[in-house]
């Protein structure tokens, strides 16, 4: 079992300049759901889940997401992006416990 925060990013193996391509990413994370006591009242605690996803392309922010516990465990996302220049695509996941997990993919043109 990979540890929390392992990020996997996949992009197509061949990209041409100007293509709109799909990037798929997955992060290993429990995405804790709200627990309830016997009376059905939610328990107050710092639930551990990813609440922000940021995608940058050569350090420019191109997409941001606010996520909740309604995302499945080990959340998966797929986004589009337009490959206009060679460089680095980075996806950062932030969680409610201050965790920061990053994955990068290098954009090269064939």
């Amino acid at each position: 079992m990979p540890e929390i925060g392992t990020v996997r990013i996949r992009i197509p193996s061949r990209i041409r300049r100007g293509d709109v391509v799909r990037v798929r990413c997955l992060v290993i994370h429990p995405m804790e759901i709200v627990q309830r006591d016997k009376a059905g009242k939610p328990i107050e605690k710092n639930y551990h889940f990813i609440n922000k996803v940021i995608m940058t392309y050569n350090a420019r922010e191109v997409l941001q997401a606010e996520t909740t516990q309604s995302m499945s465990e080990n959340p998966f996302f797929s986004f589009a992006f337009k490959a206009t220049e060679a460089g680095m695509l980075k996806i950062t996941f932030l969680d409610t416990h201050g965790g920061k997990y990053e994955g990068t993919a290098e954009i090269k043109f064939s």
Binding site: V20, Q64, F76, F77, F79, F81
Partner: peptide
């Protein structure tokens, strides 16, 4: 459940998740 903020740079408004 989730809010995605997009910019024109992504080229297509396609979002997938679970």
């Amino acid at each position: 459940n989730a809010k995605f903020s997009l910019s024109p740079e992504i080229g297509a408004a396609v979002i997938g998740t679970n």
